[in-house]
């Protein structure tokens, strides 16, 4: 029976613990990196490198290291670096959306913004899914089509037999409710202690 923490197990070279960490965190970390960089292929590259370094440097892990926080911070830093070099090459983005990404990037620091930690951290997936399913029915339908499945406002309106302005109103309503629900989580979260590598 494992009484050791994930951190300890990885420190001891347990590939299984490492692999499991990878499986559970991959999607949300790729989403997080994609948020900062604006590109999902690069995001995958970033997250791979972060995990690789975690394994390579595992001897520096302590039993009480907060792996979640370490992963997010590492992804944040690496994504910022990637963003800067992407910026200069103007790869897929227009000049303006590249500047917008740059302006927004400071708001995604996981240590300064606990909304980020909640949206992309370990508990996030379930919390977000629950928050969405608890929306009022019509509101939820509109939100899922428009936001999650990326239909245009017009397509959403056509699909559900609504007007475009109704669609927009329902989306605003959903966003307001989601912010409230995910904010509530804040009260329930235990204090996360963050340990830095030397």
């Amino acid at each position: 029976m494992h009484t050791e923490t994930v951190s300890e197990r990885i420190h001891n070279g347990e590939r299984e613990a490492f692999n499991e960490l990878f499986y559970t965190h991959w999607q949300s970390l790729v989403s997080y990196s994609g948020l900062i960089i604006g590109d999902n292929t690069d995001a995958q590259d970033v997250v791979q490198t972060v995990f690789l370094n975690l394994w390579t440097d595992r001897s520096r892990l302590r039993p009480d290291t907060n792996i979640d926080a370490w992963l997010m911070r590492s992804v944040y830093n690496r994504s910022l670096n990637r963003l800067r070099s992407n910026m200069v090459r103007h790869r897929y983005n227009s000049w303006y959306s590249a500047q917008i990404n740059r302006e927004l990037s400071v708001c995604y620091d996981p240590d300064r913004n606990d909304v980020i930690a909640r949206l992309f951290g370990e508990e996030s997936r379930q919390a977000v899914d629950e928050a969405i399913s608890s929306l009022p029915e019509k509101c939820r339908e509109v939100f899922i089509l428009r936001y999650c499945e990326s239909l245009s406002a017009k397509e959403t309106a056509d699909r559900l037999g609504l007007s475009v302005s109704t669609v927009n109103n329902q989306v605003f309503k959903a966003l307001g409710l989601l912010r409230e629900k995910l904010g509530y989580l804040k009260a329930a979260l235990l204090f996360m202690s963050i340990y830095f590598f030397d």
């Binding site: 989403s31 948020l35 708001c107 995604y108 996030s124 936001y147 999650c148 966003l175 989601l178 912010r179």
Partner: peptide, 12 residues
């Protein structure tokens, strides 16, 4: 905008 964008990426 940062919040909207974060939510966008998190739910998709």
């Amino acid at each position: 905008l940062a919040e909207l964008s974060a939510l966008w990426h998190a739910v998709r």
